[in-house]
Write a protein that binds this DNA or RNA. Structure first.
Length: 862
RNA sequence: GGGCGGUUAGCUCAGUUGGUAGAGCACCGGCUUUACACGCCGGCUGUCACAGGUUCGAGUCCUGUACCGCCCACCA
């Protein structure tokens, strides 16, 4: 590993970084250095659950940042002898892709249409979107994502990710669909998935259900309206609400059981304003006596608290919101809509029907004002409102039929899984705990969208043509994946679709996380490659960002727990975000101003990787081109220092000089530190330590041995220096290879066989064995001599700099006074120092205090 | 409201069992030195957020406070 074969040594005259990315990506691909060896047993495999980036546009700086972290770990493990299973995935399944395809081609999906094999996209997207069938729409999604994925792959290769590109998967691929559908059917058959008609969080623009994990709060202006119930009756009650438009949906009033003001009223009825609908006054501990008037109206449904009250108080439903967010038609006087004055109620409601919530709110406020039921003016406030994270309007709660995966009843088991997982950094586990503890419902996985994995289910139609949801027809496992909108269920004919006595397909697709939560199963071949699965699952590492612990990480743990009764991986490495210079999360728009590829071209991939790898696990890191320039400088330094170290690398021989041995022993300590850091997933620490060592190696050690290695102390001294130099270079190159894969490979190729990325990670013994005597006494003397040399080097440089003397002017005399031990050591290093510092005479004597004085400079004839 | 991080030089950040505050960048000065001017050498820079406590000794441990960021919950 460290030996030098002069016959294969090839040093460039002027080494440079330019072109290394293109040169080495091509060679690595040709030689297959990163190919996964699937013959190795599980114990020799290191498998990585790569995050599949969303394919809907372009990658940004944040991707470059976190994927570099994973790649450094992958390279470390590979060098340690593991067969690294490092696939890439594309997340091309989901709403962002759908939206992009709609805009890009000017189409919209209409699932009721039949597939048109002759469909051709318009040259330019027209003003009116063209309606196309679901299969046609999916074809377009596939077409556009394929283009994006090509660009992504190019960027990843240019960055130097050591991915095995033959193992790439896409979340919309047949394989992923098969895994998703198979896992869904298994859960269904085990009673762990169920469908339910229930109030569900609903986005009125996308017209789909969304899951708890996809919510975010946004501050919105609103207003408290004080409204009188029961006006004209025996008593009236005032409530406060921000959503007066839901008064028609009111099913009860509620106050705290201990609230003396309302205790006498519990169980009695009042009528709603305007519509004169009688509602009961009920007690529930969730009602807060401090808020408003201490009594609230319960509507079906204004928010999730309404759902809780509705469920726990066994109230009935008066739903007025339609899936499109408009107020539905209602017949007052009919069962469930009793009113003291149905005709008047209907007249008033007619002014709201068909309006969206904002319009309806304006209107009802006017009506309440007119009727005198609005007490005072609305009081404007700002409050947090729940949104779908990709949506533009507040979420509503709409009753609909959805599929759920059981999660709540496994809370304790999932918490235990979280503790079993090895978190890097460890404190990230608390986010998982928070989330698991705060779960308030099972996981709604059905979405009323198109570009996703369909449910592999159909439903029978009874003799009257009604859908029998209670008896879903499962697809046969062997036929997966299926599309129930075009495929026919077992036992039926195609012409029975949609007719009485026939069948209909389940129209929904799965939540994108329902597929993403199966990335280990998809990547490892759970459904179609049991041999691969056995060698790679449970996986070793899940790298990901902290913002999706509650979604991707949690859901993956849940799926693996349910399906395999195990963790999906042993380690979770959580990366931070890239922050703007103004400390905000780097937005996509800003990130796209400087495209990742332009960054890589400007600073070199190694330079950018250096910046990325400096970001510690879990820590947000500032976007900092200055650090990329530092990384580039490091790479250039490595080229030049290597050229020097190898430039006159003969003769080689026994390592006899103290400074050589001390340097190598310090390097042994570095190997230990870097290895330990990497084992703890602290790549940043490994890099930082190695880098610090390397610069000292260049600035001090190389300068110190330069003259000796050119032969000014004879062949034995030169041989010692040369052997130490090549040994150190070999180790340093390998320590830096995970971070700077291009430059380290380039230098390696000057003098070594094979790829550095398949070379063995350095170990202490390879250096220790080069030294004849490693006894404590020898080590101590060597180390002291080395430190003495560095001290003199530093002090004389300083004095020369202060004297503003050019280096070419030799120093006549340096007086060194020190204790007896240091005087002894000076003798050992004097010759090296003389040539490094151009000192003619060292006048060394025992003296106190210790001092180093440069006494004179010799004028040289110009 | 609950939780998790953070606060160290102008900037970005190290600081691993408590022992004289560090690096890089930036800035200033010097230097063509046969690995490197895409370079080299040197210099300047600090109430370690604040207040208490433990200790011979605290950037480091404990308690509290402030501010920044994030996660979760509540949002009539």
């Amino acid at each position: 590993m460290t030996s030098l074969d002069p016959s294969r040594l090839q040093l460039p005259d002027k080494p440079a970084l330019e072109g290394l990315e293109a040169k080495w990506t091509e060679r690595w691909e040709a030689s297959g250095v990163y190919r996964f060896d699937r013959n190795r047993p599980r114990a020799d495999v290191y498998s990585i659950d790569t995050p599949p980036p969303t394919v809907s546009g372009s990658l940004h700086v944040g991707h470059v940042f976190s994927y570099t972290h994973t790649d450094a770990v992958a390279r470390f493990q590979r060098m340690r002898g593991k067969a690294v299973f490092y696939p890439m995935g594309w997340d091309d399944n989901g709403l962002p892709t759908e939206r992009r395809v709609q805009n890009y081609y000017g189409v919209r999906c209409d699932p009721s249409l039949a597939y048109d094999p002759t469909f051709a996209v318009p040259d330019k997207p027209g003003k009116q979107p063209v309606s196309i069938s679901r299969p046609n729409f999916i074809e377009l999604c596939n077409r556009l994502t394929a283009e994006d994925e090509k660009a992504f792959e190019h960027l990843w290769k240019y960055l130097g990710l050591s991915v095995d590109w033959s193992m790439t998967y896409a979340t919309i691929s047949k394989r992923a669909q098969r895994v998703s559908q198979l896992a869904m059917l298994r859960l269904l058959h085990r009673g762990l998935a169920y469908q339910l008609e229930a109030p569900t969080l609903w986005d009125v623009d996308f017209r789909t259900a969304v899951a708890q994990a996809e919510l975010e709060d946004r501050e919105m202006p609103g207003a408290y309206h004080r409204i009188r119930f029961g006006a004209g009756g025996a008593r009236s009650i005032e409530i406060e609400t921000t959503r007066p438009e839901l008064i028609p949906a009111c099913v009860a009033l509620v106050a705290h059981p201990d609230d003396a003001r309302y205790q006498p009223l519990f169980g009695t009825e009042v009528t709603t304003p305007l519509f004169r609908v009688p509602v009961q006054i009920r007690a529930h501990p969730l009602a807060d006596p401090e808020k408003g008037s201490g009594i609230a109206m319960i509507c079906t449904f204004g928010d999730v608290t309404d759902v809780t009250w509705w469920r726990e108080l066994n109230l009935h439903v008066r739903a007025i919101l339609q899936p499109d967010g408009r107020l539905a038609p209602v017949r007052f006087g009919q069962p469930g809509w009793e009113s003291d004055d149905p005709t008047r109620a209907q007249e008033l409601y007619a002014q709201l029907e068909g309006k969206n919530v904002n319009k309806a709110r304006e209107q009802i406020v006017q009506l309440l004002r007119d009727s005198g039921d609005l007490v005072g003016d609305p009081r404007p406030i700002t409050h947090a409102v729940k949104f779908y994270e990709k949506g533009d309007r507040p979420l509503e709660i709409v009753t609909s039929r959805q599929w759920f995966i059981k999660a709540i009843e496994f809370r304790e088991a999932l918490l235990a899984r979280g503790r079993e997982l090895d978190w890097h950094p460890p404190y990230m586990q608390s986010r998982y705990e928070n989330w698991a503890n705060g779960l308030n419902g099972d996981w709604c996985i059905s979405r009323q969208r198109f570009f996703g994995v369909p449910f592999p289910l159909w439903y029978p139609l009874d003799a009257t043509g009604r859908v029998d949801y209670a008896r879903p027809i499962s697809a046969e496992e062997a036929r997966l994946p299926v599309d129930p909108s075009t495929d026919v269920p077992p036992g039926y004919r195609a012409d029975q679709r949609g007719v009485a006595g026939g069948f209909v397909g389940d129209p929904d697709v799965m939540d994108t996380w329902a597929t993403s939560s199966l990335t280990p199963q998809i990547a490892c071949g759970w459904a179609d490659d049991p041999d691969l699965f056995a060698r790679t699952f449970p996986m070793d590492l899940r790298p990901q960002a902290h913002d999706i612990i509650r979604t991707w990480l949690f859901d993956t743990v849940l799926r693996s727990h349910l399906e395999h009764d195990s963790l999906p991986w042993a380690h979770a490495a959580i990366s931070g975000w890239v922050l703007d210079p103004d400390r905000k999360k780097m937005s996509k728009s800003k990130g796209n101003v400087v495209t990742p590829l332009a960054l890589l071209e400007e600073h070199g991939s190694d330079g950018v990787r250096y910046w990325a790898a400096s970001g510690r696990p879990g820590t947000d890191t500032a976007f900092d081109p200055a650090q990329m320039r530092v990384g580039r400088r490091l790479a250039i330094k490595l080229l030049n220092a290597s050229k020097f170290a190898l430039g006159a690398a003969e003769p080689q021989g026994a390592i006899v000089a103290s400074v050589d041995r001390a340097m190598l022993r310090n390097l042994v300590a570095l190997v230990g530190e870097a290895t330990e850091a990497f084992e703890a997933y602290d790549y940043a620490r490994a890099l930082q330590r190695t880098e610090t060592f390397f610069w000292r190696f260049c600035d001090d050690y190389l300068e110190l041995v330069k003259g000796r290695r050119y032969g000014d102390q004879g062949p034995e001294g030169a041989a010692s220096a040369n052997s130490a130099l090549t040994a150190a270079l070999s180790v340093l190159l390998r320590l830096l290879a995970p971070f700077l894969p291009f430059v380290s490979e380039e230098v390696w190729s000057w003098w070594q066989e094979g790829s550095i990325h398949q070379a063995a990670w350095p170990v202490p013994t390879e250096l220790e064995s080069l030294m004849a005597d490693n006894s404590a006494a020898v080590c101590q003397v060597d180390q002291a001599a080395y430190e003495c040399a560095i001290e003199v080097l530093f002090e004389v440089r300083k004095q020369r700099s202060e004297a503003k003397q050019p280096l070419k002017v030799p120093i006549t005399r340096v007086i060194v006074k020190a204790d007896a031990l240091h005087v002894e050591q000076m003798r050992i290093v004097e010759a090296d120092l003389k040539s490094a510092l151009r000192v003619q005479v060292f006048d060394v004597s025992v003296g106190d205090p210790r001092e180093i004085v440069v006494q004179g400079y010799q004028a040289v004839a110009s």
